[in-house]
Design a protein around this nucleic acid. Sequence first.
RNA 1: GUGGCUAUAGCUCAGUUGGCAGAGCAUCUGGUUGUGGUCCAGAGGGUCGUGGGUUCAAAUCCCACUAGCCACCCCA
Length: 437
Amino acid sequence: MAGSFQTVKGFRDFYPEQMALRNYLVDAWRRVSIRNGFVEYEAAMLEYLDLFRVKSGEGIVSELFSLVDRGGRELAIAPEITPSLARMINARIGGLPRPIKWFSIPHVCRAENPQKGRGREFYQWNVDVVGSDEVLADAECIFTLVDLLAELNLSPADAAVFLSSRSLLAAALASVGVANEKHEAVLPVLDKRDKVPPEAFEEMALKAGLEAAQIDRLRRFQDSTTLAEAIGYLEPTDAVATARAALEEVLKLLGAMGAGDYVKLDLHVVRGLAYYTGVVYEAFDSGRALRALAGGGRYDNLLELLGGPKIGATGFGMGDIVLGILLAEKGKLPDFAERCDCFIIDAGEGMFDDALAIVAELRRAGLAAGFSYKRQALGKQLRAAGQKGAAIAVIVGQELRDRGEVVVKDMATGEQAPVARAELARELQSRPRGLAR
RNA sequence: GUGGCUAUAGCUCAGUUGGCAGAGCAUCUGGUUGUGGUCCAGAGGGUCGUGGGUUCAAAUCCCACUAGCCACCCCA
């Protein structure tokens, strides 16, 4: 590596080719959000450290970048947008029509150790519905996530959303006799169910206070592939019935929206975060080779926790890093070559001023028109046009002087024909633009 | 934050028991004035991640640091 400076650990530079990928993802996120009825917001990137302490506990402080400013304020670069979203909505809760459907694409920072699919900085698409307790809101968020997968040409065989429910997990624990105060210790163990060997799971579960019979039932419950089978391992309590109905309703709604192929029940999904209260889900690549593509769920207590009213909310986040890796590995990325609709070539002494005038005119007409900085042979300029990926070359030569015409050459087919100078812009606008390749 | 592996040209990588820094691709220049994308010729480009140490001599051996990958922790 030349030079003394490297990028800071976990941070990325975006050279034009990486920038093209990022814009491709961000454009898709924004496009899908808008057509699903979400409006965009952006929160301040620096927040009071206490905002994250209140939401996530003191332990969060070591996981984020914080600083003390010259006024002695404890600040943090936002590691996620949800607390800021709650802050912004709480501030205007009285005046916002509900449901509040907002999305954002913040650049967030987390002080974690980097590895594949995880840096210390990333862009995270966030989609949330606030102010609705209905599972319809959960279903609409999940549909939006599925819509994005499809928008990026990821089929159900490439990636899918795995659906679970915190309320069902809580009801399940209660129904097999796990006391409420043990839930906080047990949930992380269930989260590990398919991530550790069976013996390790057993050991962790015993340590969390479960009995052997409970572990066995919960294991079967989690491993169930249908909701009916899962419920069969539980006692028929009201809480179980209510949670089951909610989850069934979400699946039914997604089926009605044609997203059923992308959504699968998976009771191994728990989510680490304590604040989830209802439906939870994660999106993964089909091979499960990568980290989660997205994760989310219902969080009905967060706004109240941050000083607002008790108001229901649900949503998810999706980072740019894992998504970019998956699309690249699946060969689902388009060619990010720069756009060059046409390339203007001066052929002959003294024609450059005319060529430049044409470049300027075509650019004003909205075409991406290129030209060579060097006055060189026609062949060299054609090669430059080819390297730029120009669909069309315009040759400005003697026929302009003789008959007021230029030669328009299709770079893909090699066909060329004279076009009147005055008709050139209109002629090129009528042709397909972009790459000739 | 902890541990393991790794770091040579813009990219992918060779470089033997320590003995003159290399290839392919990419880039640039030329092949003399109107036809490209697969042609020829030439050139530039590296304090071998950074800083120390051992040695007559270090890309090569040793130490520390930095960064990347992997496994933990965590996963908002």
